[in-house]
Amino acid sequence: MFLLTPEPIDPTSLREAADNPHAGAVSIFEGLVRNHHQGRKVLRLEYEAHGPVAEKEGRCILREAIEKFDLDYAGATHRTGTLEIGECAVMVVVSAPHRRETFDACRFVIDEVKRRLPIWKKEFYTDGSSEWVGCEGCRGKQH
């Protein structure tokens, strides 16, 4: 199950979705908002997502993970909107009969989420400035 949500992520309910008598292992990854980025002090973040494409691609990543690692369950949730320091931005939960597959699958899912989902992050710094993450190097060359 893949979900985009403007509401705070509830780890307990997401974790429960992985319960399955066939599964002997559950791995969880939580991505949190930290207070610094490349030496700058971060105050808060804003996430923007393209809903239709992100949800389609997110479901696709989870299907790939289930097939590749023979999982019993794979779920991921990504936040949108304004997030304060310490809040959970993304959570991945996977379950399988054994731990090796769940560790590998968890990493696969978060890496693909970062690489493939149309989601953008704007960082707001303590000095009052802000920046779209990932666009710094591409901007301003042309004009």
């Binding site: 494409v53 989601i119 953008w120 993450v133 990932g134």
Partner: peptide, 26 residues
Amino acid sequence: NDEFRSWNQPLAEEDKVTLFPPFAGG
């Protein structure tokens, strides 16, 4: 129309074209 495409894709009347900056999720 909500499917990733290459830049060489021909356009049709009433297409929805979405432009994505570098992704930064997670």
